[in-house]
């Protein structure tokens, strides 16, 4: 079970003279829950976008299950993601949106409903079966829709950018449980970025700190990790 699901090889991205990403080597194993922390502008979203082939790297490559993402599109089949509200199609109703995402994976409506069952307590009856468009939902509920959609279609790799932000406290805890359950039961490789150190240490088995585009720490989570992270960000 030691397959490498995501491999980043000497990835460099510059905007003008600014180097925003420089990762010589990063390998993420199957079923791992990988946490990414760092201050604003550290390159978290840039890294995610590079993995999703939404930006062009100046150098290096990203391999998703051995597929180089900028060469072939097949990685899309096994990847689910939610980075920002642009990933929602906000003029649709949540149900329409889910069935659209389902259709892109060739799923029938019943299969979509089945896969959404895990999220029912998370949705709190405020999302499914309502006439409201996504654009008229609260920020928190929009986030819930996006996160749930990222898990549709049996993805093997899921990327979530700041999933805990904008959620109310109990939803944050529910989400933690959902992520843990799904990654264990479905063996999903998870990449999660967060500003919330407590959540990320609770959920992730490995945590990387990004600073100015570089990986400055690579930690296996243990009881001291949270303390270590806090010290790092206090002194930086």
């Amino acid at each position: 079970m030691n397959e490498i699901y995501l491999k980043i090889d000497s990835a460099v991205k510059n905007y003008g003279k600014n180097e925003v990403l420089n990762i010589p080597s990063l390998e993420i194993k199957r079923g791992a829950c990988f946490g990414l922390v760092g201050n604003n502008g550290a390159g978290k979203t840039t890294l995610f976008r590079a993995i999703l082939d939404l930006i062009q790297l100046d150098n290096g490559k990203v391999l998703s299950k051995d597929i180089q993402v900028d060469q072939k599109e097949e990685w899309k089949r096994h990847t689910g993601s939610f980075l920002d509200e642009g990933f929602l199609i906000d003029y649709l109703r949540p149900d329409e949106f889910f069935s659209f995402v389902g259709l892109t994976h060739g799923m029938e409506k019943t299969a979509v409903a089945e896969q959404l069952e895990v999220f029912e307590p998370f949705f709190k009856d405020e999302i499914l079966g309502h006439k409201k468009y996504i654009r008229d939902l609260s920020k928190g509920n929009q986030k819930k829709v996006g996160i749930a959609a990222a898990f549709l279609g049996q993805p093997e790799i899921v990327l979530l950018d700041e999933p805990f932000a904008n959620l109310d406290p109990s939803s944050q805890f529910q989400l933690r449980e959902i992520i843990k359950t799904l990654s264990k039961e479905r063996d999903i490789t998870m990449l999660i970025s967060s500003h919330d150190l407590t959540h990320v240490t609770d959920v992730c088995s490995r945590i990387v700190i990004l600073e100015k585009g570089k990986m400055v720490k690579d930690l296996q989570t243990n009881p001291q990790t949270l303390q270590e992270l806090e010290t790092f960000f206090q002194t930086i």
């Binding site: 999703l52 899309k76 089949r77 920002d84 642009g86 929602l88 892109t104």
Partner: peptide, 14 residues
Amino acid sequence: GRYFDGIFSRNIFI
């Protein structure tokens, strides 16, 4: 345009 990232990181081929 606003949905561009979302559309092209989903399982939708060009």
